[in-house]
Design a protein around this nucleic acid. Structure first.
Lengths: 360, 360
DNA sequence: CTGAAAGCGCTTACAG
DNA sequence: CTGAAAGCGCTTACAG
């Protein structure tokens, strides 16, 4: 592996005199433009309110100085930070990232900035992060529903801003909730497999581990097991393996474990497409044909599921739309300064039938 | 798909009187504890400085009121916001998400909060986001290297804080740079394929589209093409298809396009594992055997590449470590308040040999 | 259409 | 070990 020389042209004088030049303030602009600070402020926030001549003088001074208003000061004074807090279990999950993207998009026009924190599925960390977030005085708080520590719930209730829980529909929402029932996802999956006549049915999930738990995934498993029980089927092939978050590798090892323990298994629901795809890959290596020998379905409709062979049957939730919708609701709410009654919105879910479930 | 009734227990009285109760300030705490505001401030930032008796009174008042200090005010006063700005092309890319995770981890102990923005690979958006970020007075700015608009570069230079470009090694860094050479990635990939005796060599990438361009990916392609040219091989099988960011689907369609145009192709380098994996999946559907008929290698070492069959040969860069390292450097720098000379750190790269390249 | 005054909720820099 | 004063850089709420 040869490495030809790189042309490392050292920049002439990088960032000269950092400490020398203080950043200009509104006062500097006002002096240069020969107007009051209020006028500068107006030009920047409500230009129509000031005479074009004055406006141009100010704008020129702003450009000449490279003035960037300090929002820290602005926030303190106006009591509006322009922050919306978002707390997620993790950033490295395409669906949660999609929520963040959807939210950002909805918030962009109204000029809100997302303040993101994540918990790594750890409830103790959620509480810690929540404190950090609250200290920044966000104008609204968005977080993943399902489970919080008591202290976290209390802090959320005491926070003087709208709270919306997403991606689940808690039975006792803190305030607003926009999402879907993970419990229903589990029941729907089981029902789907039941309806196709399978009787040896299993599942792949993570194992709850104290404070580090995927509560939403657990909800799916609870629904799945309930539906099996209602059908008088055993739940002993519902495998909890490793800890959250799941991964392709999780699916591969869990699949092998399950199949070795239950060789007659016919159909498997994985808590996430990540696990389901890993299971399909492991099946290929074990020379188990999907779906002829074993049927597999996932949850989340990740892109990779559409591309593998066979394409993965899964349950789809539009996470991007969920983020978008949450953002729009918040923008409306914050604009009107109203305090509407708590709303619970179910965005629903949809089975996407592809090729990983056997026709029978 | 039946939907049994959900127990929608409406919470007794969610968030009573939001507008009634103002959030407590440091003044409220000081009054309740019978001390000055300064003493409250000290208890919260430097507890050893105050008498245990006094401290306990204050802590009790803080707990009773549920006081959370307002960092907006604190920031303005102390001139330290505790923010580190991070600008990324996108959040929905496992490697960039890993950078964010690594950074967060390094920053956590020092109590810095990441302020994240992303550009969707759009340079105009980068400039807009940069302004938003700068207005929040971050104490340092981390962004993806390779390319910026002139205005963006100027704003960065004028910003009175450390700037570090990551995930590339620009020939003219703004200040610090921690990353690897994407150009070298391309050359290394081509060299690897050349050394194995392939002569009909192609590549899969996105097509630059004005302001919306994956400049780092383009650098990889430039290196790849250069290495082919140095070997006196044609570059006509380097396919640019669709626009950034690439995806599994991108790889699938680009692969089909390339193979139909160049049926005698022997080996392909994909700009990202995402495309490479999509290509492998499409090959399966086309009954093209990997690596017997065509060899494929990717870049980025995404988890899915390890799990597919055949496992994907790729080029690995430790993005998490990159984030971690950047964070540590920043914490040190900010703690000492020093202004060290610009540092350029190459974290290197590594070929991961798996099964998608034919032995010959 | 423009500006002088007051204040947002903290911390800095003293003083005692 | 504790506190009174001043001030961070803006915007609000008037006033003219």
């Amino acid at each position: 592996m040869s490495r030809p020389p790189r042309e490392t042209t050292a920049p002439a004088d990088p960032k000269p005199g950092r400490r020398a030049s203080q950043r200009p303030t509104i006062r500097d602009v006002s002096r240069l433009a020969g107007v009051s600070r209020m006028t500068v402020s107006r030009v920047l926030s409500d230009p129509e309110l000031v005479l074009p001549t004055t406006r141009d003088k100010v704008l020129k001074a702003v450009a000449d100085l490279g003035y960037v208003p300090d929002k820290t000061a602005g926030s303190l004074s106006s009591r509006r930070t322009g922050f919306i807090a978002l707390m997620l279990p993790t950033l490295t999950n395409a669906n949660f990232a999609a929520v963040a993207h959807g939210l950002t998009e909805a918030l962009r026009e109204a000029n809100y900035h997302l303040l993101i924190a994540y918990t790594d599925y750890d409830m103790a960390e959620e509480e810690r992060q929540l404190l950090n977030l609250l200290a920044r005085r966000p104008e609204a708080i968005v977080l993943t529903g399902a489970m919080h520590r008591r202290n976290a719930s209390r802090m959320l209730m005491a926070a003087d801003v709208p709270v919306v829980e997403i991606a689940d529909l808690p039975s006792q929402p803190i305030e607003h909730a926009i999402g879907f029932s993970n419990y229903q996802v589990g029941r729907t999956a089981a029902r789907y497999l039941l309806d196709r006549g399978f009787t040896r049915i299993g599942a792949l999930a993570a194992s709850p581990d104290g404070e580090v738990t995927d509560h939403r995934g657990e909800e799916r498993m609870r629904g799945f097991e309930d539906e099996l029980r209602f059908a008088r089927l055993p739940t002993d092939a519902v495998l909890r393996h490793g800890s959250a978050p799941v991964s392709f590798h999780h699916g591969a090892t869990a699949f092998r474990t399950l199949v070795e323990a239950q060789p007659d298994i016919e159909a498997i629901f994985a808590v996430s497409d990540l696990s389901a795809v890993g299971a399909v890959m492991e099946a290929q290596r074990m020379n188990i044909r999907i779906p002829d020998d074993i049927s597999i379905m996932g949850f989340g409709d990740f892109e990779i599921g559409r591309e593998i062979n066979p394409a993965l049957t899964t349950i789809h939730v539009d996470f991007r739309a969920l983020g978008l919708r949450t953002g729009k609701m918040l923008v409306d709410m914050l604009a009107s300064d109203a305090n509407p009654a708590p709303s619970i919105v179910d965005v629903g879910l949809r089975i996407v039938e592809r090729a990983s479930i056997k026709d029978r």
